[in-house]
Amino acid sequence: MLNVNLINTLSGLLLLTSLLVIETKKPRQSAILYSFQSLILVAIFLALAIRMEADQLYLWAASAFLTKVVLVPVILYRALGKVDQTVTSLNTVSAPVSVLLAALAVVVSFTVVSQIELKSAADFIPALAISVAHFFFGQLCIVTQRNLFKQILGFCLMENGSHLTLALLAYRAPELVEIGIATDAVFAVIILVALAGQIYKRLHTLDSAELQTLKG
């Protein structure tokens, strides 16, 4: 039996790493940070597996490790190797503002989650709230960052958030479900990266602000 607090604390750590992923100037570093964050997620899965005595979660942890800690960061890292790094540090709002927004997301998440009365999740309210907030962090990343790869990372953060929620609330789900979600996420990343690569090849930019010709 593991302490609930461990899980909650780990979740908190998750938030911190996400902020780092968002705010790091260099996308390659972000990719690495993302890998690290996914590792924390895997740890949470393991902790949950022990606490809940849910065997499926081991498998989850394994697949998450494979996809999120290894596969996705590698893909991203390699893809980033092929592109020009000069445009990588663009963002829309300054770091303090985005931190503030992040804080807001946390507050909103806590408010919403605290209303839920789930007997299975009663212990993990903070973790649940954090998972929701984490989801929003991903969104925040997409909104505030102009680099296409940062936007992909934002999507990955959202994935992690929802993944955590799934683990907290539905750890007994069949493996197939989890695998489906994970694979989809990986494929999404692959396709996003491929598209971003094409865009870079054709348009020589990774700045989403330059992708604004279609309007009205």
């Binding site: 909103v108 919403v112 909104v143 102009r146 989403s208």
Partner: peptide, 23 residues
């Protein structure tokens, strides 16, 4: 029509705002 200004990030923000407002 000005809503549709071509900026992807704003579009994502709309989704977020819609969600937030609803919540």
């Amino acid at each position: 029509q000005r809503m549709q200004m071509g900026d992807l990030r704003m579009y994502c923000l709309y989704i977020f705002i819609a969600l937030a407002v609803l919540l």
